[in-house]
């Protein structure tokens, strides 16, 4: 679940205090609510999660939250300590070699999906990259293509389906696999079948899949540790934060596949001021384009019509 180079998330919106060694707690909302004056105590049972409005795009939220809690316990007790220990034992160059090798093996699937999306330019670059790294890069251990301006560009059936208009379906969180959607999860399984079916040995062997899966998973956990901590340690609801960030990033990725510009898709949200929502007179002329992606958008309280006029600020709360 690596989101970005570590310092960067800290530098931006998700900036959180550097909670070193702190584990992500789900208890924050309850804890905060419990600290309230008695009035709200009845509404917030101490032990059970209170009812909350359903989130668009996440109909399986109850199951997902269960999986998220399970993953957090497992991560705290086993996964993270093991991954960090492995990271200390195996030197970085060897880990990046393994990463390059496994990534190189994914290039045929990337190529296939480049073709399915009718992107010949990308397909040719992927093929060139695979050939170069396999031949000169010691079977993919060294990413020589990257220095030759042929960086890895991920692609998969999930993107291809999205390209042809298939929506994401329900959001899913699964331990180890992390955040995904029904479309992306099932597509990933299909992608994984390509090499075993097309090439056979060793890709169709269970022990090969287990070993490569474990290596990739551990490497990923090591690399993403600081990011995850930064992203989630300050979160009131880490589950919802991760879901939001994942879905937003997928929407942007799919917009990019479809050839949209570098404008963030969330810029389409009019972000209407709740304090002046009832006075805003919507007009159709400059209405925001409908969400270009079929992916679910987060629960935005903003109503759909655009607020064209400059918002008239009400008396600002005394926040200074």
């Amino acid at each position: 679940m690596r989101l970005a180079p570590p310092a960067l998330i800290a530098l931006t919106l998700t900036a959180t205090p550097p909670a070193i060694g702190q584990t992500v707690e789900l208890a924050a909302p309850q804890a905060a609510a419990a600290a309230l004056p008695g009035a709200t105590a009845a509404a917030v049972p101490a032990t059970t999660a209170p009812p909350r409005p359903r989130t668009k795009g996440d109909p399986w939220e109850k199951f997902n939250r269960g999986m998220f809690r399970l993953f957090q316990s497992f991560d705290r007790a086993v996964f993270r300590p093991v991954a960090l220990a492995v990271g200390k034992i195996i030197p970085k160059p060897i880990r990046s070699g393994i990463r390059n090798f496994l990534r190189n093996l994914s290039e045929p699937v990337v190529f296939l999906n480049d073709v399915l999306q009718l992107k010949p330019g990308r397909a040719v670059r992927t093929l060139a990259r695979f050939t170069l790294n396999s031949a000169v890069g010691l079977g993919g251990l060294a990413d020589v293509a990257k220095t030759a301006k042929l960086p890895h560009r991920d692609n998969g059936l999930g993107n291809t389906l999205a390209h042809y208009g298939v929506g994401p379906g329900p959001y899913i969180f699964l331990p180890i696999i992390g955040p995904t959607t029904l479309r992306d999860f099932s597509s990933a399984q299909a992608d994984r079948l390509v090499l075993p079916l097309a090439v056979g040995k060793p890709f169709n062997r269970f022990d090969w899949q287990l070993a490569t899966g474990a290596l990739a998973g551990l490497d990923q956990r090591i690399e993403s540790d600081e990011d995850l901590r930064t992203l989630l340690s300050g979160a009131a609801d880490p589950y919802a934060t991760l879901r939001s960030v994942y879905l937003q990033s997928r929407i942007a990725e799919i917009a990019e596949i479809k050839g949209k510009t570098a404008t963030p898709t969330t810029f389409e949200d009019p972000l209407e001021d709740p304090a002046s929502a009832d006075t805003a007179a919507p007009t159709g002329a400059d209405a925001p384009v409908a969400d270009p992606s079929p992916a679910p958008t987060e629960e935005a309280p903003a109503p759909p019509p655009a607020a064209n006029e400059v918002q008239i600020e009400p008396a600002s709360p005394a926040g200074t």
């Binding site: 998700t14 917030v44 209170p50 609801d237 934060t241 570098a262 949200d269």
Partner: peptide, 22 residues
């Protein structure tokens, strides 16, 4: 962030539960 992740959208998601409960 990186042309995709909106701070407001992320915070809305993060705070939705706490607002609904407390």
């Amino acid at each position: 962030y990186q042309n995709s992740i909106s701070q407001i959208a992320t915070q809305r998601s993060d705070f939705a539960r706490i607002l609904a409960t407390g």
